[in-house]
Amino acid sequence: MESLFLQQVVNGLIVGSVYSLIAVGLTMIFGVMRISNFAHGDFSMVGAYIAVFILAWVPGWFGWVGSLVAALAGVGILGLVVERGLFRPLITRWTDLDQIMASVGLFFVMENLAQLFFGATPRMLPDPFQGATVDFGLFSTSMMRVLCISMAVGIIILLQIYLNRARMGVAIQATAQNRNAAQLMGININLIYGLTFALGSALAGLGGVLYGTIFAIYPTMGAIPTLKAFVVTILGGMGNIRGAIFSGFILGVAESLGGAYVSMEYKNAIGFVILILVLLIIPHGLFGRSEE
């Protein structure tokens, strides 16, 4: 009984690390640009497909390293293009509703293009460890999942270091906290918007590859990470990066425990139940909103 519980917590932390990674990108984009990107999970889908194709072409470790790098870079560039082509032209004119509709439109376009080009067949990513597992005594897991959580946590730590130390990283935070003051410091906020959107999308892309090590990959898969990322982002406080990191893990563990002890069918609903409860009691999320 104890080991089942522990096992579920560990499984939850692994899935949660991927939720965190994807949600951090979403919350960053919201914090800096005030855009709720409903196509965020589709950037994860694109990242996952980049890995599918690279691994079909170059199997083994080379393919894996290549997939991760290509997903990060490829989806980052896609983010840059979408920011310049779709969001930036609207940014001075739109209302909140306009940008929400634009991102919902983007979600449909990306899903349909994926169906057209990638086909509807679900795909799996090959396991570079050939199914090897590690036994920690009270719980065990696959090597692949150890790699997954290590990658997610590693990237989140690197991002934190970048945002807190690097000149451009601090400028991203400054812009999120006070857009006008940032401009008065000589920060080119269009550059910051592009950088933030590219970075946030790249994180979603990489998260998509890691997501694909746990779940199946198919053209309409993006909706689930989008919804999960929104739950995590709102739980953590919109625009609050640390809040999103912790909430991702909380959601992963809650889903895993709920699936084991309550009902597997309602696993996906658990996040929303928690969300509604938290919003009823603490409207600004578990960790407070980012500065307006």
């Binding site: 601090v170 400028a171 935070q173 400054a174 906290q177 003051a181 940032a182 410091m185 500065e291």
Partner: peptide
């Protein structure tokens, strides 16, 4: 130099000054 409440609230004093020297 805008009003004092226009500082970056979550950044440290030192990081605020660093942002002043951004360009």
């Amino acid at each position: 130099a805008p009003e004092g409440r226009e500082v970056f609230p979550s950044l440290s004093v030192h990081d605020n000054l660093r942002m002043g020297a951004f360009t």
